[in-house]
Write a protein that binds this DNA or RNA. Structure first.
Lengths: 239, 239
DNA sequence: CGCGGTGTTGAGACCTGTCAAGACGTGTGG
DNA sequence: CCACACGTCTTGACAGGTCTCAACACCGCG
């Protein structure tokens, strides 16, 4: 059930059996939502946090112009609104991109869990800090990389993040985003996303077909996107 | 000394006298650096975190192209690499924009402090989550707002963040950034920053002169930037 | 007094957006 | 089974925002 989540934690630090058990027992229940459903609405008071078990979600912000910006993608094993545990309300929405299953952790149980396990507190704090690092990297992309490089970087990030939870086969993964949604991540229009994708295809860097991305030349794609995975903190250290 | 910092915390939650004393006693020493000095270099192992007492700092990422992107500005009272407490190394640099004074908090003292005060842990966790919210807002700006709106939004953010630590007079504040550095925040070239500034001046929204920004029409500037301060979480709640 | 950093201005190029139309695929209802 | 509607993908023509390159003004400082 939450194996992917534990895998994600254990990439960064050791989690004891006792801690694992404590996490499991803080979970209240599992829920499901269909695609294109808001899961957390911005501004609402929060009393629980949700852990994504299956599917993709996205943090979205709607603009007055009718456009929207996606500030992060969330995959299986991600605690999508763990920051809500301290913020108590979010500044953005969380939308289900695909059909999703998620586990619910009430804040009072989290609080009890974390007061009893200071080490787990630091590990979860770390996880929200890694989200912030991802945000910074997107800021750099949006601010300073041209469209093809920006897109290459995103495909690399998704690959590595899915890889550690076992959701890739080689350099290939399921990719449920429409070109419009991809544009919402990259700050581009869907028309330009379409042309940029064609350019990456022509350069033999990737194949995109039927909801699947296949990276043909990972080194080339990483070079184009100036991708380095250090901001994902894939390293086990005492936290 | 760290009054501005306490003010910042107390905007978000109550901090008891005992907690305040504990924070004070976790501080090791005060250091100074001149302008344009790196204070934290990306990738280095960290054993302490620093609290800015005076001056401006910026999180910077250098690109292969020679450009750089600033992902956040830091002011008096900000714990500039508190996230380093769990990350153990940063993915970006922290540069002193102006001459700066800062207080040093060794990680072992922080750890001791926070294990003893779970409530403080949540408050500091909150502070790093607010940094992440600022990053998300910049992502939205860079992705979906045109240059004038982006710039307006940034001037509004700086105003509100400086206001809560008492660094504003009315709608005006000291502004030490060069147009180049401002462009590094906004993902623009200094040439375009110059023209955009002129446009804001012509619209009678701001005056910029001699290292000072004076906002003439705050409502107008907020409207242009679609600025809402909810992402700064200026609200006291039990955390 | 000269120098380097910063701010300003102009001309032209390029990247990305807008608008519009058509192709394609999938699900639904008749 | 067909007809149709709808969302998504694709393509073209054109517009506009931002960048690049270059030159010059200004100013503080050694």
């Amino acid at each position: 059930m939450i194996e992917a989540h534990l895998k994600k934690l254990r990439v960064r630090d050791d989690i004891s059996g006792e801690e694992e058990e404590a996490i499991r027992s803080a979970m209240l229940e599992v829920r499901e939502v269909p695609a294109d459903t808001p899961v957390v609405r911005h501004g609402r008071d929060l009393h629980e946090s949700i852990l994504l078990l299956d599917g993709w979600m996205a943090r979205t912000t709607a603009m007055a112009s009718g456009h929207q910006q996606i500030s992060e993608l969330q995959f299986c094993g991600d605690f999508v609104d763990l920051h809500g545990f301290t913020l108590k309300r979010l500044d953005h929405n969380v939308m289900a991109i695909t059909d999703c299953r998620y586990a619910v952790f009430p804040h009072d149980r989290l609080r009890h869990l974390l007061e009893k396990h200071p080490h787990l507190t630091r590990v979860y704090w770390l996880m929200t800090n890694i989200d912030a690092a991802i945000h910074r990297e997107w800021t750099v992309s949006l601010g300073r990389r041209p469209a093809p490089s920006r897109m290459a970087h995103l495909f690399c990030e998704i690959l590595e993040r899915l890889r550690i939870v076992g959701q890739t086969t080689g350099d290939s993964y399921q990719f449920p985003l429409t070109q419009q949604e991809l544009g919402d991540c990259l700050g581009l229009t869907s028309v330009h996303v379409n042309r940029t994708l064609q350019s990456l295809r022509r350069q033999k860097l990737i194949e995109v077909a039927k909801g699947r991305v296949n990276i043909l030349d990972l080194a080339g794609l990483q070079a184009l996107g100036e991708f380095e995975d250090d901001y994902l903190y894939f390293e086990k250290r005492a936290r």
